[in-house]
């Protein structure tokens, strides 16, 4: 039996005429947390958007399977309902729709009281969704959305960018709760693919696998903390050098 929640094979994605994702293979097992590192514009967000089949992202080659289901012919809501939730890097404002109304529409009457409290979101429930939210508030609202959806696979795009230290802790703890981090590995049902620039989140959220993403490709996969250390020391140019050295040796 395939225990993978996500299977991506030879994925190519174009935005308009431009190929952004240039052949990716990536599988995430049940209970695993993967992080994606990569420079601005390398295509990280594009990968998440393509998994959700958001409009404007065309899969030109390859496939995405969620729980063994090929998503090629599915609409965005159908993919979400397979058990995928995405925290957007830039969520749009939705005028006239309160955060409470939105949560009610997606939570299938799950009790969100404790999650709302944990993310300090009570004061925002009657506000219009994402309208006038600060950077940190946007991120907290996105994580609260994931609580409400309670998906098997979390796609989280830069949860810590533009967020102060205290709120990074709040957000990281919330992610851990959704990922059932208090339970033993074998009983965890949920997985995540988290995009991070700074890696700050890794001090609280334990990740199992790290990938370096560059120019539409995964160029390196390994222990996330080791990768982060290397990037901190040598930057992404260091990664390029490292790969080149590696190839020479081979």
């Amino acid at each position: 039996m395939n225990t993978n929640i996500l299977d991506i094979a030879n994925l190519h994605v174009a935005v308009g005429d431009k190929e952004i994702i240039k052949g990716i293979d990536l599988s995430i097992k049940k209970g695993e947390v993967h992080v994606l590192f990569g420079p601005n514009g390398s295509g990280k967000s594009t990968l998440l958007c393509a998994i959700m089949q958001l409009p404007g992202y065309t899969i030109t080659e390859g496939s995405v399977h969620i729980h063994d289901t090929d998503t090629a012919e599915l609409t965005t809501d159908a993919i979400a309902n397979l058990g995928v939730g995405m925290s957007f890097q830039y969520p749009p404002k939705i005028k006239g729709v309160t955060l409470r109304r939105f949560l009610d529409s997606i939570s299938q009457s799950r009790d969100l009281h404790s999650s709302i409290a944990a993310l300090n979101m009570e004061p925002f429930l009657e506000r219009e969704l994402n309208v006038g939210f600060s950077g940190g508030e946007l991120k907290r609202a996105e994580i609260l959305k994931l609580y409400a959806q309670s998906p098997d696979l979390l796609l989280i795009d830069e949860p810590e960018s533009g967020v102060d230290i205290e709120n990074i802790t709040v957000i990281s703890n919330a992610i851990n709760t959704i990922l059932q981090k208090e339970s033993p590995m074998a009983s965890r049902e949920r997985s995540a693919l988290i995009i991070t620039h700074t890696g700050n989140i890794l001090s609280t959220v334990h990740a199992d696998v790290g990938h370096v993403f560059m120019d539409g490709k995964i160029i390196c996969t390994g222990n996330p903390l080791d990768i982060m250390e290397d990037i901190k020391k040598g930057g992404f140019s260091g990664c390029i050098q490292c790969i080149a050295n590696h190839k020479e040796k081979q």
Binding site: T75, D77, I94, G96, V97, S105, A148, Q149
Partner: peptide, 20 residues
């Protein structure tokens, strides 16, 4: 797309936006 990505089907998502 944002609403649909949270599992809301298209017609329902449109209604939400219009009501708002």
């Amino acid at each position: 797309a944002y609403l649909m990505a949270s599992g809301i089907e298209e017609d329902r998502a449109k209604s939400l936006i219009i009501e708002g």
